[in-house]
Design a protein around this nucleic acid. Structure first.
Lengths: 143, 143
DNA sequence: AATCATGTAACATTAGAAGTATCATGACTA
DNA sequence: TAGTCATGATACTTCTAATGTTACATGATT
């Protein structure tokens, strides 16, 4: 499969929305992401269902942030876009008959589970607001 | 893409080979993995190039282990099968023009890099010999 | 009523692992 | 030396999920 870039795309969009007055249309967002407006709607739908953004139809419509970015973590966004699959690698059979394969599966899964836990911990530790402040700092030439 | 199960498949095979006298043919291994002999040859080729196994043609030919399993880690196998890609998720553009996107990419990559480092550390910490001993212990009903 | 914007459905594209068929090559056996 | 067995290599097809694209329905604003 191709890279799942929904998380980084949505983070990108949310930071722009945070610095933008008024709604942003899917077309404008799509231009920003260099993609299609339908892809934007499809991906943003997850954020909308989670209550992180709102969408308005008609003239002057578009997408607006509907939550406190201080309490929105990267992990929240990851989950909202429905990105449960993290790893490319994995076992072939979930519940093999072969005892050797069972042992191998456990060994691989243990390592993957640990890595997944760490990744989620790291994603949960950063809020969108912090990310946004990081941008301010960088633009001010202080880092 | 489908799951990359090359690592767990090769671990499975290596443990069986360690308990098997004489060469194992690709056909026999394929039956074990419930797959095709060509897939076996293709995947085992990486292990052969790394010097972990050897292959012999003709009558009585097949695959044999050519290294000390005590010093062969899960990470060695992972690398030998050419599995550099670990994560499904990632950034859309490697070197974006947009400063916001750059910051987002760094944040996501930092988290992924940490998780990858931990995973590799865990894979490097277990040798095939240890795995094999774990199997002995389990079969003896001691765990 | 016309326009703008989202919502949704349907289908094509893409990337990489896996599955498959075929033939060449080399090794052992009779 | 011929026949068989096994790997080596090539050239496809299949599979899966994200992404790209087209088309149309729906609702809000002017």
């Amino acid at each position: 499969m191709r890279n799942d870039s929904r998380l980084s795309r949505m983070l990108h969009v949310l930071l722009h929305m945070a610095r933008h007055d008024g709604p942003m249309t899917s077309e404008a967002i799509a231009a920003m992401l260099r993609t299609n407006a339908v892809v934007v709607r499809r991906t943003m739908a997850g954020l909308r269902d989670a209550g992180y953004v709102r969408s308005e139809k008609g003239h002057g419509g578009g997408w607006v942030i509907a939550c406190d970015l201080e309490h929105l973590s990267l992990l929240d966004v990851h989950r909202a876009v429905g990105g449960p699959r993290l790893f490319v690698i994995g076992n072939e059979h979930a519940n093999p008959d072969c005892a050797v394969e069972q042992l191998v599966n456990e060994a691989v899964e243990d390592a993957l589970d640990e890595a997944e836990a760490l990744l989620e911990k790291r994603l949960a530790a950063v809020s969108l607001a912090e990310l946004s402040r990081g941008f301010d700092v960088r633009c001010a030439g202080l880092s």
